[in-house]
Amino acid sequence: MAVTPPVCDFGAPIRDFTLPGTDGRSHSLAEVSGPNGTLVMFICNHCPYVQAVMDRITRDARDLQAAGIGVVAISANDVGDYPQDGPEQMALEAEKHGFSFPYLYDESQAVARDYSAECTPDFFGYNAAGELQYRGRLDASGRNPGPPDAKRELYEAMMQIAETGQGPRDQVPSMGCSIKWKAA
């Protein structure tokens, strides 16, 4: 079932974390943050919404990193029910798509809960002061890729944040598969 996260809570503080990555190292927020802002993405391997835009995520991440924006992806799905989202498969996915950013595993799901992540993909764009300025979609893609010339909404918002510290006031929420929470 497709899930749409809430609108941006402008000014909400970025949440600290240290999580293991597909590269065998742990990565902290301080390590992945950029001087001009930080993009925290909740993604996973199995979600068709993520797979539909994986090449665009990779493209936009490289372009944002070149502009001094830190980028990180986190998978928090319950691998007991979704083994394809486990660390070994995450490493293969990162290699397959040539990720230029750390891909981290949130086994306890505490970080996803701290961020109030709802779906994959879920994008959180912060300014240099660590204040949330974007919680919208990547572009007009859904379960299938949007048109090749789709407006790069996430990229343009993050560039605006890098330049002004403020995100666009009009944002279209992302849509995707729900985070696969562990049974309580």
Results as ranks from 00 to 15, higher is better:
79 V>R: 02
163 E>F: 00
21 G>L: 02
40 V>N: 04
116 S>M: 12
13 P>E: 07
80 G>S: 13
105 Y>F: 15
124 F>A: 13
56 R>G: 06
107 E>Y: 07
76 A>P: 10
155 Y>T: 15
171 Q>R: 00
3 V>Y: 04
180 K>S: 02
132 L>I: 10
16 D>Q: 04
174 S>Y: 04
125 G>E: 06
86 G>M: 01
79 V>T: 15
149 D>A: 13
7 V>Q: 14
83 P>G: 11
44 C>L: 04
117 A>E: 10
117 A>L: 11
88 E>F: 06
137 R>K: 11
57 I>P: 01
124 F>E: 14
100 S>E: 03
152 R>K: 15
167 G>C: 02
75 S>I: 12
42 F>L: 02
38 T>N: 06
104 L>E: 03
157 A>W: 12
29 L>E: 05
3 V>M: 06
75 S>N: 15
123 F>T: 14
97 H>F: 14
147 P>F: 07
48 P>S: 09
169 R>S: 14
58 T>C: 13
110 A>W: 03
82 Y>L: 15
164 T>Q: 02
58 T>W: 07
141 S>L: 07
117 A>M: 10
68 G>H: 10
156 E>F: 06
162 A>R: 07
127 N>L: 11
174 S>R: 03
168 P>C: 05
39 L>Q: 04
50 V>R: 01
8 C>A: 01
76 A>R: 09
173 P>R: 09
27 H>S: 03
102 P>F: 00
175 M>C: 09
7 V>H: 13
19 L>T: 09
87 P>H: 06
83 P>D: 12
127 N>P: 08
93 E>A: 14
128 A>R: 11
51 Q>H: 08
58 T>A: 15
178 S>Y: 02
57 I>T: 01
173 P>H: 10
138 L>D: 08
154 L>E: 11
98 G>V: 03
33 S>L: 09
108 S>F: 08
51 Q>W: 04
144 N>C: 07
167 G>R: 00
127 N>M: 10
37 G>Q: 01
92 L>T: 12
57 I>E: 00
155 Y>L: 15
99 F>D: 05
92 L>Q: 12
26 S>N: 14
5 P>T: 03
129 A>I: 07
92 L>F: 06
69 I>Q: 08
34 G>S: 05
11 G>D: 06
2 A>F: 06
20 P>H: 00
154 L>T: 07
19 L>E: 06
146 G>P: 08
121 P>N: 10
66 A>T: 09
155 Y>Q: 14
86 G>I: 01
153 E>M: 05
130 G>S: 06
43 I>E: 05
93 E>K: 11
67 A>E: 09
10 F>A: 05
16 D>R: 02
145 P>D: 13
